[in-house]
């Protein structure tokens, strides 16, 4: 049975190898640990190429946008999200130039696939590992891959889609079982996935908290309540309608958000729900305050306590 990183690696390499003319590039792509297993056995389409690069993240981000302008589709593989602090200027300025002056459908596609270090004890870089903050600052879609279903849809629809996006895996779940799920509903833009349908509670997992969401779903089932379980990605605009319908029906909302931002993406959903005047019980579980130094940064979810509070 594959673990999370093995399963993701197999899906990513399979999709990447089938993109004609694509440039797959990054540091340590085809040697050493293969970016912690992310790019193991990575091969390009016969008309594309794999390019192992030096350490120059800002330039490598600019290179991707240059290839986009030159009509070439590329995927840049990155070890850690915080390396992309060096690329923010391009995400904002270069991509905004391209978006405001060119027809994206006539250009190459650019994707960055990276790892978020969220297993704690990551020290000074840790608070910079907040994926949603990049999405917000650059106003770009950012996708968190949590299981077979969202990974398959995101990779299938995004790797050759016009424009730019980032796709992230997380290190906290590296050794966990690769979740094989089926979505009962997903938005076309892959920002909202729904995995179960239930009338007793609504569980919304943000960022990489889907496994914890599944545990809460199981706890509700144990208490005789069926729950709808959602997972939400980052985007400038998220279609919340399906989740709002569910909350209106269940009147119980559980939010799980393991993001590290000061401005959590779940606040947007709560704002929307309050704006509609919906009455519901809720429990919002987020990370404890992020310490500035080295810390475990735990994301602690107690499913039984949640059920007891909302049941």
């Amino acid at each position: 049975m594959a673990n999370y990183i093995q399963g993701m690696n197999q899906l990513i390499t399979a999709y990447a190898a089938n993109i004609p003319g694509a440039c797959l590039y990054g540091q340590n792509l085809n040697n050493g640990t293969f970016i912690s297993g992310l790019t193991k056995k990575l091969v390009a389409h016969p008309t594309g190429r794999v390019v192992n690069t030096g350490n120059c993240e800002n330039t490598l981000c600019g290179v991707g946008f240059g290839m986009m302008l030159g009509g070439v589709t590329s995927i840049y593989f990155v070890k850690q999200l915080d390396f992309m602090l060096l690329g923010l200027d391009h995400f904002v300025n270069t991509y905004n130039f391209i978006r405001s002056s060119r027809d994206l459908s006539k250009l190459g596609s650019f994707t960055i696939i990276l790892l978020v270090c969220d297993q704690g004890m990551q020290g000074a870089q840790s608070s910079g590992n907040s994926f949603g903050d990049y999405a917000s600052l650059a106003r770009i879609p950012c996708f968190t891959l949590t299981n077979s279903a969202d990974a398959d849809q995101v990779l299938r629809t995004q790797l050759t889609a016009p424009g730019f996006r980032m796709i992230a895996l997380n290190m906290r779940h590296f050794r966990s079982e690769f979740l094989q799920l089926n979505a009962v509903y997903a938005t076309k833009d892959s920002t909202v996935f729904q995995y179960t349908e239930g009338a007793g509670a609504t569980i919304v997992s943000f960022n990489f908290s889907l496994p914890e969401g599944l545990a809460v779903h199981k706890a509700f089932a144990g208490a005789g309540l069926s729950a709808s379980l959602f997972s939400v990605n980052y985007a400038p605009v998220v279609d919340w309608s399906r989740i709002k319908q569910s909350v209106a029906q269940t009147k119980r909302l559980v939010i799980l958000d393991d993001s590290k931002s000061v401005h959590l993406p779940c606040y947007q959903l709560l704002d929307e729900l309050h704006a509609e005047g919906l009455a519901f019980k809720r429990d919002v579980v987020t990370r404890q305050r992020i310490e500035y130094g080295v810390s475990p940064e735990p994301f602690l979810v107690d499913p039984q306590a949640i059920v007891a509070k909302l049941g």
Partner: peptide, 25 residues
């Protein structure tokens, strides 16, 4: 003139990408 940057230095790496695309194509 495929790219013009108001940000100092941004255009050099984008130009690398343009040249890479030219080479690949």
């Amino acid at each position: 003139i495929v790219y013009t940057s108001s940000i100092l230095g941004n255009n050099v790496s984008v130009a690398c990408g343009l040249a890479m695309a030219m080479k690949m194509r």
